[in-house]
Amino acid sequence: MKITFMLNDRKVTWDALPGESLLDFLRRHHVVSVKKGCDGSTCGVCTVLMNHKPVLACTVLAMRCTGEHIHTVEGLADEVEKISEAFGIEGADQCGFCNPGIALSLYALKRENSNAEASEIRQYLEGHLCRCSGYQAQVKAALRYIGGGQS
């Protein structure tokens, strides 16, 4: 069946399969920034913003998104570029498979708490597994982004 929702501030009407998760639905429609890393709600790489809050796209039924606002990194390029600058400066980029999801959570965190400290960042990002880094550079990059480019 067709569902209509707001994807990155644009109204779209796409077909959804019965029981299809938002993750599979978005990837099938070639929104490939949303990654699949596990069999359900354990890794964080499929994070998207639903009505400006981070959610795991694998745990949301596509049908449930009718009329809702979904944001992915494609729709927040200006903010994501700022996050990426901070990652670059801190050497926090590695394979990058988890980065789109982390970027969305960091964007949401900054909106919720523009003074977030390292311990709050670590707590907020705990659901984003990363096997490449030791996490520390990500925290430094997050502090830099939240601090408006300063570390």
Partner: peptide, 24 residues
């Protein structure tokens, strides 16, 4: 200090990984 040459494109979600490039 040189940032990764591909960090930005990947964070911006450009198709880059194997499954992003599969034939529809």
């Amino acid at each position: 200090y040189v940032p990764s040459v591909d960090g930005k494109g990947i964070m911006l979600g450009r198709p880059a990984f194997t499954d992003d490039l599969a034939e529809p």
